[in-house]
Amino acid sequence: MIGTDDDQTYAQYAAGAIPRLRRIAYLLCQDWHRADDLTQSALARLYRYWRRAQGVENLDAYVGTILLNVFLAEQRTHWWKATSVSAEPRELAAPAASGGAALDQALDLRAALMTLPPRRRATVVLRYYCDYSVEQAAQVLGCSTGTVKSQTAKALAQLRDVLDPSAPTDEGAPARDPGVSEPGFRVQPSVSEGTL
């Protein structure tokens, strides 16, 4: 464990970072409870690396990378490692009482974002919420800049209905399938999850 001074600096940083990380996590998963879990996991991991992390030039970006890795790792978690995978719809935050056109569009966007595959969704969040450059996003996602560009273009094509309803629909855009629910199952927590 790290020492008291380190704990203090960590606590100070974590307290300040939680709101931002929660918002990013929410954009990724659209579920505030899960956003809390993702934030918790990312910051818990940061704690283990805190001494060295303090020397990182852009700590916020470093922690963002951890958060994204946690999120993406969850997407390929095996069924037996899941504690609860349910067909029930995710809990969505109640819309604010007022917010104008931007919020209306945001609420439409929320549904549209969930139709994007996880990595594509992450690309959108990195590029247009975290304001990462193509190169930065490529580094975080562990892929080429070309992949980021193509993922971004595909995402924009998929979101076009929401962002620009007047635009003609792309022939190649994936079809929506709102009526299909995922087969749900519940498993017990794995005793061996994680490594030594």
């Binding site: 819309p95 604010a96 931007a102 569009q105 966007l109 247009y128 919420y129 962002l163």
Partner: peptide
């Protein structure tokens, strides 16, 4: 518009 919508979405009452 995407940037604005993401900002608005993230700024919702949590």
């Amino acid at each position: 518009r995407l940037e604005a919508a993401l900002e608005a979405l993230a700024a919702q009452d949590a």
